[in-house]
Design a protein around this nucleic acid. Structure first.
Lengths: 114, 114
DNA sequence: TCGCTATATTCTATTTGGGTAATATAGATC
DNA sequence: GATCTATATTACCCAAATAGAATATAGCGA
């Protein structure tokens, strides 16, 4: 039950759903996600932690960056199922579409290192 | 997006998940659910409203009683999918098992009309 | 009509959740 | 080692969610 609730809670917040939808297209570092969503960096970190705790995303360090990506679903069956559904869900959502369209222009080299 | 969030939010609360799991076995009135969960009646009504808004449950008046049952999923594709998953999810959950075992003894004739 | 009962709604207290600013940490470069 | 940068953590604020007591509503039966 607790694991299920964790997944549901994780996916019951728009910004977190957006993160999942973006990660379907490419792995992203925190600052890229921050730039895409337009929210403060600590907020992004917190959202990512919640998604990670639910077994929806995972991270890999790459020097100074931390790359987040969707999990393969091995950890949580609930997470796996929802990630599967989210592959096709909300593909026509205007808000998501706009976000995804902007994705190619969001590259860490242009965003960070100021 | 909003519809999806609604379904996720609705299912991110243990008592509401329990209600769904119970309704898989039989339609129930508010006081039966209240007796099963051991929470106040207004809380039950509020939970049911949230589930209803998400397209997960529906109600039918029967005189003084209001019978709640799971939807067929025609309203929301998200709700339909989750309801489908929840058919087999958490079948081995201890908390759910206990609840379901007690279900046959929960009958409105014995509970209400005091 | 007058209660009586099941449910819904309102009100209020408490908890939870998301947001940011400030700070800490870790890894890179010099 | 000093410093810069990306991320995590902490502290705090405000909005939303949950719980229950009190009240309103609606349908039954006498």
């Amino acid at each position: 039950m607790k694991d299920f609730i964790k997944v549901m809670k994780a996916l019951s917040e728009p910004n977190r759903v957006k993160i999942v939808k973006m990660l379907q297209h490419k792995m992203m570092c925190v600052c890229e996600i921050q730039a895409s969503l337009g929210i403060a960096q600590p907020s992004v970190s917190k959202h990512l932690k919640i998604l990670e705790d639910a077994g929806l995303v995972d991270s890999k360090k790459d020097g100074l960056w931390v790359n987040y990506h969707l999990t393969d679903g091995a950890v949580s069956a609930y997470a796996a199922a929802l990630l599967g559904n989210l592959r096709h869900w909300m593909e026509e959502d205007r808000e998501i579409e706009e976000l995804v369209e902007k994705l190619p222009n969001i590259r860490r080299e242009n965003i960070c290192k100021k």
